[in-house]
Design a protein around this nucleic acid. Structure first.
Lengths: 111, 111
DNA sequence: CTGTATCCAGACGGATACTG
DNA sequence: CAGTATCCGTCTGGATACAG
């Protein structure tokens, strides 16, 4: 065939590439790092804030809300004196995190 | 340990998360789709332009240049009458594309 | 066909101050 | 500790016209 056969990168209904959509789920500048952070286990708001370096609390909050709405993370307020809130990956979030982790290996391979 | 043990998401030297860096390599709005498109084989500029739907030639050109500089794709001008230019994934680009393809499977799994 | 050159609107994210 | 509310600069990407 002279004409190129397109791969499955466009949804027949929405016309949107699922891969691009998934990448969008990962969020903006800090989304991927945030998700990858939580791969190591649950973390509190301030821990995440510090781990992500120069992220503003506003953006962090927004991203957490989005991930929560997407079912990637869970939010559980601890009832201790410090009123901390723990964030952790859901099974679905972990599955995505596993794929993301492969990007780590890829990035360390020789060109 | 009460304190959370950070995962390998921050480079000890640059302080940058390699995963986030890799995700950045994928480019902006159309980068991932573009890469995924080329998974099916080499394509010409106009083919890509159409496959990506509403992408401007300016942005497409920019993204192609970036990918080329990153060693993810190759640019080979054909010397035919139509002066077309073929773009294809390099081995490194294909390796990345393989990982990206997993995102497709993930996105189709039940929540 | 394959770009390049401007211009511009909107999204994104940082800084800061304030609240429960 | 964990947010929320504003303000505002920057960066991205779209539209359009022009060029090799």
């Amino acid at each position: 065939m002279t004409a190129h056969t397109p791969g499955p990168w466009a949804d027949p209904v929405t016309g949107v590439c699922p891969v691009a959509e998934t990448l969008r789920l990962l969020g903006g500048k800090h989304g991927p790092t945030l998700l990858h952070c939580l791969t190591g286990g649950e973390m509190h708001f301030l821990e995440l804030s510090r781990a992500l370096g120069g992220i503003s609390r506003k953006v962090l909050t927004e991203q957490l809300r989005v991930f929560e709405a997407e079912g990637l993370i869970s939010r559980t307020p601890k009832q201790d004196a410090r009123r901390r809130v723990a964030y952790a990956l859901t099974p679905r979030g972990q599955a995505l995190g596993a794929i993301i982790a492969q990007l780590y290996d890829w990035s360390t391979q020789p060109a």
